[in-house]
Protein backbone atom coordinates (compact mmCIF):
# COMPACT_ATOMS: atom_id res chain seq x y z
CA UNK A 1 0.00 0.00 0.00
CA UNK A 2 1.40 3.42 -1.00
CA UNK A 3 0.60 5.93 1.73
CA UNK A 4 1.16 9.67 1.48
CA UNK A 5 1.01 12.28 4.19
CA UNK A 6 -0.97 15.41 3.39
CA UNK A 7 0.38 17.69 6.06
CA UNK A 8 -1.95 20.67 5.25
CA UNK A 9 -0.68 24.22 4.87
CA UNK A 10 -1.51 25.22 8.44
CA UNK A 11 0.34 22.28 9.99
CA UNK A 12 3.25 22.61 7.57
CA UNK A 13 3.75 26.28 8.41
CA UNK A 14 2.68 26.59 12.05
CA UNK A 15 2.56 23.09 13.58
CA UNK A 16 5.42 20.99 12.21
CA UNK A 17 5.36 19.04 15.49
CA UNK A 18 2.03 17.52 14.51
CA UNK A 19 3.47 16.30 11.20
CA UNK A 20 6.55 14.84 12.88
CA UNK A 21 4.29 13.10 15.40
CA UNK A 22 2.11 11.65 12.63
CA UNK A 23 5.16 10.36 10.75
CA UNK A 24 6.64 8.88 13.93
CA UNK A 25 3.36 7.22 14.88
CA UNK A 26 2.80 5.70 11.44
CA UNK A 27 6.37 4.39 11.26
CA UNK A 28 5.96 2.85 14.71
CA UNK A 29 2.92 1.02 13.34
CA UNK A 30 4.95 -0.20 10.36
CA UNK A 31 3.56 2.19 7.75
CA UNK A 32 6.11 3.71 5.37
CA UNK A 33 4.78 7.15 4.59
CA UNK A 34 5.72 9.39 1.71
CA UNK A 35 5.60 13.18 1.61
CA UNK A 36 5.15 14.55 -1.93
CA UNK A 37 6.91 17.92 -1.82
CA UNK A 38 4.66 19.43 -4.49
CA UNK A 39 1.76 19.61 -2.03
CA UNK A 40 0.55 22.96 -0.70
CA UNK A 41 -3.06 23.63 0.32
CA UNK A 42 -6.39 21.86 -0.32
CA UNK A 43 -8.14 25.13 -1.17
CA UNK A 44 -10.54 25.20 1.74
CA UNK A 45 -9.83 28.77 2.80
CA UNK A 46 -10.40 30.05 -0.72
CA UNK A 47 -13.58 28.07 -1.24
CA UNK A 48 -15.13 28.96 2.10
CA UNK A 49 -14.30 32.63 1.72
CA UNK A 50 -15.91 32.83 -1.71
CA UNK A 51 -12.98 32.34 -4.11
CA UNK A 52 -14.13 29.31 -6.02
CA UNK A 53 -11.78 29.63 -9.00
CA UNK A 54 -8.64 29.67 -6.83
CA UNK A 55 -10.05 26.76 -4.85
CA UNK A 56 -10.58 24.73 -8.03
CA UNK A 57 -6.99 25.44 -9.10
CA UNK A 58 -5.69 24.21 -5.73
CA UNK A 59 -7.99 21.19 -5.82
CA UNK A 60 -6.64 20.23 -9.25
CA UNK A 61 -3.13 20.65 -7.94
CA UNK A 62 -3.93 18.44 -4.93
CA UNK A 63 -5.42 15.73 -7.14
CA UNK A 64 -2.36 15.68 -9.41
CA UNK A 65 0.09 15.69 -6.50
CA UNK A 66 -1.53 12.73 -4.76
CA UNK A 67 -2.49 10.67 -7.83
CA UNK A 68 -1.22 7.11 -7.57
CA UNK A 69 -1.34 6.78 -3.79
CA UNK A 70 -3.61 4.18 -2.23
CA UNK A 71 -4.23 6.30 0.82
CA UNK A 72 -3.61 9.92 1.76
CA UNK A 73 -3.50 10.58 5.49
CA UNK A 74 -4.24 14.08 6.76
CA UNK A 75 -3.87 15.14 10.39
CA UNK A 76 -6.81 17.52 9.92
CA UNK A 77 -10.50 16.66 9.91
CA UNK A 78 -11.53 19.77 8.03
CA UNK A 79 -8.96 19.43 5.21
CA UNK A 80 -9.85 15.74 4.80
CA UNK A 81 -13.52 16.73 4.71
CA UNK A 82 -12.77 19.43 2.14
CA UNK A 83 -11.32 16.85 -0.24
CA UNK A 84 -13.90 14.15 0.39
CA UNK A 85 -17.07 16.25 0.77
CA UNK A 86 -16.42 19.45 -1.18
CA UNK A 87 -14.29 18.39 -4.16
CA UNK A 88 -17.24 16.56 -5.75
CA UNK A 89 -19.21 19.86 -5.67
CA UNK A 90 -16.31 21.47 -7.57
CA UNK A 91 -16.59 18.82 -10.29
CA UNK A 92 -13.12 17.47 -9.48
CA UNK A 93 -12.53 14.00 -10.91
CA UNK A 94 -10.30 11.13 -9.72
CA UNK A 95 -10.25 12.43 -6.17
CA UNK A 96 -7.54 10.65 -4.13
CA UNK A 97 -8.72 8.57 -1.18
CA UNK A 98 -8.16 10.79 1.85
CA UNK A 99 -8.42 9.73 5.49
CA UNK A 100 -8.29 11.70 8.67
CA UNK A 101 -5.64 10.23 10.98
CA UNK A 102 -8.10 8.46 13.29
CA UNK A 103 -9.96 6.93 10.32
CA UNK A 104 -6.72 5.65 8.84
CA UNK A 105 -5.64 4.07 12.13
CA UNK A 106 -8.99 2.47 12.99
CA UNK A 107 -10.51 1.71 9.57
CA UNK A 108 -7.47 1.01 7.39
CA UNK A 109 -4.89 -0.32 9.86
CA UNK A 110 -7.50 -1.80 12.19
CA UNK A 111 -5.79 -0.64 15.39
CA UNK A 112 -7.25 1.15 18.38
CA UNK A 113 -4.29 0.60 20.72
CA UNK A 114 -1.31 2.34 19.18
CA UNK A 115 0.96 1.64 22.16
CA UNK A 116 1.02 5.21 23.37
CA UNK A 117 1.70 6.49 26.88
CA UNK A 118 0.48 9.89 28.07
CA UNK A 119 -0.12 10.25 31.82
CA UNK A 120 -2.40 13.29 31.78
CA UNK A 121 -6.05 14.30 32.18
CA UNK A 122 -7.36 15.03 28.69
CA UNK A 123 -10.65 16.20 27.21
CA UNK A 124 -11.44 15.82 23.53
CA UNK A 125 -13.21 18.33 21.26
CA UNK A 126 -14.50 16.42 18.21
CA UNK A 127 -14.50 19.42 15.77
CA UNK A 128 -17.39 19.96 13.34
CA UNK A 129 -15.86 18.67 10.14
CA UNK A 130 -14.64 15.43 11.75
CA UNK A 131 -17.97 14.91 13.44
CA UNK A 132 -20.52 15.99 10.83
CA UNK A 133 -18.41 16.07 7.66
CA UNK A 134 -16.29 12.92 7.90
CA UNK A 135 -18.49 11.28 10.55
CA UNK A 136 -15.50 9.82 12.41
CA UNK A 137 -17.77 9.03 15.35
CA UNK A 138 -16.03 7.60 18.39
CA UNK A 139 -12.80 6.63 16.61
CA UNK A 140 -10.65 9.32 18.28
CA UNK A 141 -12.13 8.49 21.68
CA UNK A 142 -11.40 4.78 21.20
CA UNK A 143 -7.80 5.61 20.36
CA UNK A 144 -7.44 7.89 23.37
CA UNK A 145 -9.05 5.40 25.74
CA UNK A 146 -6.30 2.93 24.88
CA UNK A 147 -3.49 5.32 25.69
CA UNK A 148 -1.80 4.16 28.89
CA UNK A 149 -1.89 6.64 31.75
CA UNK A 150 -4.39 8.90 30.00
CA UNK A 151 -7.56 9.91 31.80
CA UNK A 152 -10.20 10.93 29.23
CA UNK A 153 -12.90 13.23 30.58
CA UNK A 154 -16.02 13.92 28.50
CA UNK A 155 -16.46 17.49 27.27
CA UNK A 156 -19.95 18.94 27.89
CA UNK A 157 -21.56 20.28 24.69
CA UNK A 158 -18.80 18.54 22.73
CA UNK A 159 -20.67 18.59 19.41
CA UNK A 160 -21.03 22.38 19.40
CA UNK A 161 -18.76 24.43 17.14
CA UNK A 162 -15.85 26.25 18.83
CA UNK A 163 -16.38 29.31 16.64
CA UNK A 164 -13.26 29.10 14.48
CA UNK A 165 -14.77 28.62 11.02
CA UNK A 166 -11.74 29.89 9.06
CA UNK A 167 -12.20 33.53 8.03
CA UNK A 168 -15.40 33.49 10.12
CA UNK A 169 -13.15 34.09 13.16
CA UNK A 170 -12.10 37.41 11.66
CA UNK A 171 -15.23 38.43 9.72
CA UNK A 172 -17.54 37.69 12.63
CA UNK A 173 -15.09 38.21 15.44
CA UNK A 174 -17.69 38.88 18.14
CA UNK A 175 -19.83 35.81 17.55
CA UNK A 176 -16.68 33.74 17.11
CA UNK A 177 -15.31 34.95 20.44
CA UNK A 178 -18.68 34.33 22.12
CA UNK A 179 -18.74 30.74 20.83
CA UNK A 180 -15.17 30.25 21.97
CA UNK A 181 -15.98 31.59 25.43
CA UNK A 182 -18.72 28.99 25.86
CA UNK A 183 -16.52 26.19 24.55
CA UNK A 184 -13.73 27.17 26.93
CA UNK A 185 -16.22 27.38 29.80
CA UNK A 186 -17.04 23.74 29.08
CA UNK A 187 -13.37 22.80 28.84
CA UNK A 188 -12.71 24.38 32.25
CA UNK A 189 -15.63 22.42 33.74
CA UNK A 190 -13.84 19.17 32.91
CA UNK A 191 -10.78 20.02 34.99
CA UNK A 192 -8.57 18.65 32.19
CA UNK A 193 -4.99 19.85 31.75
CA UNK A 194 -4.95 19.14 28.02
CA UNK A 195 -7.54 19.93 25.36
CA UNK A 196 -7.11 17.57 22.42
CA UNK A 197 -8.58 17.75 18.90
CA UNK A 198 -7.77 16.39 15.46
CA UNK A 199 -7.64 19.81 13.87
CA UNK A 200 -4.98 22.41 14.61
CA UNK A 201 -7.08 25.21 13.10
CA UNK A 202 -9.65 24.84 15.85
CA UNK A 203 -6.83 24.44 18.37
CA UNK A 204 -5.17 27.60 17.09
CA UNK A 205 -8.34 29.47 17.98
CA UNK A 206 -9.04 27.64 21.26
CA UNK A 207 -5.40 27.52 22.34
CA UNK A 208 -4.86 31.19 21.52
CA UNK A 209 -7.80 32.11 23.71
CA UNK A 210 -6.82 29.73 26.53
CA UNK A 211 -3.37 31.28 26.50
CA UNK A 212 -4.67 34.85 26.44
CA UNK A 213 -6.82 33.98 29.45
CA UNK A 214 -3.84 32.43 31.27
CA UNK A 215 -6.06 29.39 31.84
CA UNK A 216 -3.25 26.92 32.36
CA UNK A 217 -4.83 24.46 29.93
CA UNK A 218 -2.72 23.52 26.90
CA UNK A 219 -3.89 22.20 23.56
CA UNK A 220 -2.47 19.22 21.70
CA UNK A 221 -3.24 17.55 18.42
CA UNK A 222 -4.42 13.93 18.61
CA UNK A 223 -1.34 12.82 16.63
CA UNK A 224 0.98 14.19 19.27
CA UNK A 225 -0.74 12.33 22.10
CA UNK A 226 -0.84 9.10 20.11
CA UNK A 227 2.85 9.47 19.21
CA UNK A 228 3.89 9.81 22.86
CA UNK A 229 5.58 6.80 24.44
CA UNK A 230 7.22 6.10 27.75
CA UNK A 231 10.60 6.77 26.13
CA UNK A 232 9.59 10.08 24.56
CA UNK A 233 7.85 11.15 27.78
CA UNK A 234 10.90 10.29 29.86
Amino acid sequence: MRVALFITCVNDTLFPGTGKAAVGLLRRLGVEVDFPLAQTCCGQMHLNTGYRDEAVRLADRFTTTFAGYDAVVAPSGSCAAMVREQYPHLDIEDIPKVYDLSEFLVDVLGVTDVGAYFPHKVTYHPTCHSLRGLKVGDKPARLLENVRGLELVPLPGAEECCGFGGTFAVKNRDVSAAMCADKIGNVMKTGAEVLCAADNSCLLHLGGTLKRQKSGVRVLHLAEILASTEESAG
Partner: peptide, 20 residues
Protein backbone atom coordinates in the same frame (compact mmCIF):
# COMPACT_ATOMS: atom_id res chain seq x y z
CA UNK B 1 -10.20 40.43 14.86
CA UNK B 2 -7.94 37.51 15.62
CA UNK B 3 -5.60 39.03 18.19
CA UNK B 4 -8.33 40.96 20.06
CA UNK B 5 -9.15 37.86 22.04
CA UNK B 6 -6.46 35.33 21.17
CA UNK B 7 -2.70 35.01 21.42
CA UNK B 8 -0.87 34.16 18.22
CA UNK B 9 0.91 30.84 18.06
CA UNK B 10 4.66 30.87 18.06
CA UNK B 11 5.94 30.63 14.52
CA UNK B 12 8.33 27.68 14.27
CA UNK B 13 11.89 28.17 13.10
CA UNK B 14 11.50 25.36 10.58
CA UNK B 15 8.47 24.25 8.59
CA UNK B 16 7.48 20.61 8.36
CA UNK B 17 8.59 20.38 4.75
CA UNK B 18 12.09 21.69 5.58
CA UNK B 19 12.36 19.20 8.44
CA UNK B 20 11.29 16.44 6.02
Amino acid sequence: GWTDTRDLPEIPAESFRDWW
